[in-house]
Design a protein around this nucleic acid. Structure first.
Length: 154
DNA sequence: GCCAACGTTGGC
DNA sequence: GCCAACGTTGGC
């Protein structure tokens, strides 16, 4: 079992949207970055735990936890001409992009802000800290536990 | 809305 | 396969 952090823009899809989705689940679509894709395709497993992180918003923060309930599947939007996620260079024979299915688990009682993460000397590995545009990133066991404590979860 | 950082593209 | 130009992300 592994730990991850997935970014999302709350204006587009927030932790509340996930909680209110049918079965509190959603197909995590629209990942269009190769490094993130490789994690989704090769490493993310059913049962893995995921921090949901809100980006491009007033207070960027880890806001909740979800569970992976289904592994990598082809993201259908890459073939949808009317979608923002359409990719002319992807083919059905060899689809370029995948997504996984997440199920809502809980909100952080206290969101763990980017500011707090950056200021925290115990968090050194997290890719978020080194900035970058990676939208799916691994979280170490120790940092998962630490961020859970900061957020007030068990 | 600005702009730095960085991933992607494409010409050579 | 290099690298400049370009586009996007995302914090501020």
């Amino acid at each position: 079992m592994a730990y991850w952090l997935f970014k999302t823009e709350p204006d587009a899809f927030s932790i509340d949207d996930l909680q209110q989705a049918p079965q509190q689940s959603t197909f995590w679509e629209g990942i269009r970055n190769y490094q993130a894709r490789n994690f989704l395709r090769d490493d993310v497993q059913v049962g893995d735990q995921v921090f949901i992180y809100h980006s491009s918003c007033k207070i960027p923060a880890v806001v909740g936890i979800a569970t992976v309930t289904k592994g990598a599947e082809t993201d259908p939007h890459q073939f949808d001409l009317s979608s923002d996620y359409y990719d002319a260079k992807s083919s059905k024979d060899n689809p370029r992009w995948v997504g996984v299915t997440l199920c809502y688990q809980q909100h952080m009682p206290r969101p763990v802000t980017l500011k707090a993460i950056k200021a925290d000397d115990a968090i050194t590995e997290l890719a978020l800290k080194k900035a970058g545009r990676l939208s799916i990133m691994p979280v170490t066991d120790a940092e998962w536990t630490h961020i859970c404590q900061l957020g007030g979860t068990e």
